[in-house]
Structure formats: structure tokens, C-alpha cells
């Protein structure tokens, strides 16, 4: 049971947005879909949710083709950056209509969430600020009760308090009944706390598709005096070296070899954001 993406390519005029991408989003996992601006994250999510068609390749949701398939599409919900609700529609009306399309939509829960976020139910969609527009879409996405929830920039325009509230609700909801949440975000540091799997896309190509532990376990930082760090990294695969005065700090692929290191060297792990920057820097 998963969303399976096979050999998807998509171009927009001269721009190749996705190049032969194959990946899967497993059942009941929180997955981070990471990439720089224009990497192709939104294009991928839009193809999965049948909003645009790929030039080649296919997407299946629990074994059924995703394109033009109502029953497959009723198993997923995409919260996108683009607002697809009519501008004149009130928030409460949007909730009612979402229930029309998704019978498992929990309107009471949505109202409770809206109350927690101080989202006015009577406001029209066009009257919502950027932050509240994100909140409205988040509340809908979290109340829709489908096996796959795709969140494209879910915290766009949200203040720190609302972001924390969202993460808290997402985790509580996930703990209560696990579902697959695919989160495409630029706030990697915040999302890293609960992401289980990581998919990194760079310039339309799949760079990494593994668990967060697996990704971060294969890389470490070594720091110390310039001379000893330089000696240690010789012959190893170095992703990055930073110099501050006489000190060096290097990001190295593999596992730390403490036996080969002098006592003055310090080893530490690399956080997801740092690793992401190193992997995606051109």
C-alpha cells in the first residue's frame, strides 16, 4: 500500500522540471520532500494529485492508476500553495463542500482546529491573509481523514506559534491513527524533528530516497586544528570544509574513524538541514 511513482518526466517548454523520477511514499510514514526552489517538488505533487499530466511515466495509488481515477484520488488530499477554493466561498462553506467530496471529512474536528488557530469560519477565502490561508488549508487537510496527505509548503506565512501548533496537531493526529504525510518544506530544521523518510530532489532528478537516520548516519563532522583536520580528511570523501581562524571543520562521508584521529579532533553528527545544503549546493 503506497503511492508509487515510476519513471516520471515532465517539462514546461524549455524547462525540464522532472527527469525520470521513480520513488514511493510508504504507508503510515511522515516523509519529507526536500529540494531547492524550482527543484520539481510541486510538479511531482501536482502530477500525483492529477492536476497536471506527466510527459511520461505513471503514478499508482495503492495499485490503482492515479490519473483520472476518482477512487484513487479520493485516497489522497493535496494541500497546495495555490488556492483552489473559490475566492467568494466562506471557510465554513469550504468545510461543508469538502465533506461532500470526502465523506470522512471530520467537520467537528475542523471547527475545533479552526478555533485553536483563531481562524474565523465566516471569513471568505479572498479575505484571508497569507498565513490564515495556509491555516485554512492545513485545517482542511488535517480533517479530511484520507490515507495520504500531501502538504506543499504547509507553514507558508505562519508565525512560530502557529507553526508549533501545527506540528503538535500533526503528530497527535498521526499518533492517534497513522497516515502518510508528505511534507514539502524549506523549513527543514523544524520538520527534521518528525520526518521519518527523506526524499531529496535536485534539478528534477532524484538525489536521495532513504530514511532520515540512514541519510544522516552516513555523514559526520570532524573539527579541530587546521593541521589535524587536514591530515584526517586526506583520502576521505569530503563534502565541505569550513575554516574559522586556525580551526577547521569538515563534513565527511562514511563513519568516523576515531582510531585514525588524534585526540584533539572532535566528531559529531550532521543535522538534516546542513546535509541538505551540502547535497544540493551546485
Amino acid at each position: 500500500m503506497s503511492i508509487l511513482v515510476e519513471n516520471i518526466s515532465k517539462s514546461f517548454q524549455q524547462t525540464q522540471a522532472l527527469q525520470n523520477i521513480s520513488l514511493s511514499f510508504g504507508e503510515g510514514k511522515i516523509c519529507g520532500l526536500l529540494g531547492r526552489n524550482g527543484a520539481g517538488k510541486s510538479t511531482l505533487l501536482n502530477i500525483i494529485s492529477n492536476r497536471i499530466f506527466p510527459d511520461s511515466g505513471s503514478v499508482t495509488i495503492d495499485g490503482a492508476p492515479a490519473a483520472e481515477n476518482d477512487s484513487a484520488q479520493s485516497r489522497l488530499y493535496l494541500m497546495s500553495e495555490k488556492t483552489c477554493y473559490p475566492e467568494s466561498m466562506r471557510v465554513v462553506e469550504a468545510f461543508r463542500w469538502t465533506r461532500n467530496f470526502y465523506p470522512d471529512f471530520d467537520e467537528d474536528f475542523a471547527r475545533k482546529l479552526a478555533d485553536s488557530f483563531q481562524l474565523n469560519l465566516k471569513t471568505r477565502v479572498k479575505g484571508l491573509s497569507t498565513g490564515y490561508l495556509s491555516i485554512f488549508k492545513l485545517v482542511t487537510a488535517l480533517s479530511v481523514n484520507v490515507p495520504y496527505v500531501l502538504l506543499d509548503e504547509p507553514v507558508l506565512g505562519l508565525d512560530a506559534n502557529h507553526r508549533e501548533l501545527f506540528y503538535h496537531i500533526l503528530l497527535a493526529k498521526y499518533a492517534e491513527k497513522p497516515f502518510t504525510a508528505v511534507i514539502s518544506t524549506h523549513l527543514i530544521e523544524e520538520a527534521a524533528r518528525f520526518i521519518e523518510d527523506v526524499i531529496i530532489i535536485k534539478e528534477g532528478k532524484l538525489l536521495r530516497d532513504c530514511s532520515r537516520e540512514e541519510l544522516t548516519a552516513g555523514v559526520y563532522m570532524v573539527s579541530g586544528s587546521a593541521q589535524s583536520v587536514e591530515a584526517y580528511i586526506k583520502g576521505r570523501k569530503v563534502l565541505d570544509v569550513e575554516a574559522i581562524g586556525g580551526l577547521r571543520s569538515a563534513c565527511v562521508e562514511g563513519t568516523p574513524d576515531k582510531a585514525d584521529a588524534g585526540p584533539e579532533l572532535e566528531f559529531s553528527g550532521v543535522d538534516l538541514q546542513k546535509l541538505f545544503i551540502l547535497l544540493t549546493n551546485s
Binding site: S49, N50, E68, L76, S80, C84, P86, N100
Partner: peptide
């Protein structure tokens, strides 16, 4: 225009 984006948002195919 409006119905297209609203229905796609809610998992409705173009055929439906």
C-alpha cells in the same frame, strides 16, 4: 474555471 480548480482540489477527475 472555478469549478475545475475546486473539484481537482477535492479529487474529482475531469471526466466526472
Amino acid at each position: 474555471r472555478e469549478n475545475f480548480s475546486m473539484t481537482l482540489q477535492n479529487g474529482v477527475s475531469r471526466r466526472s
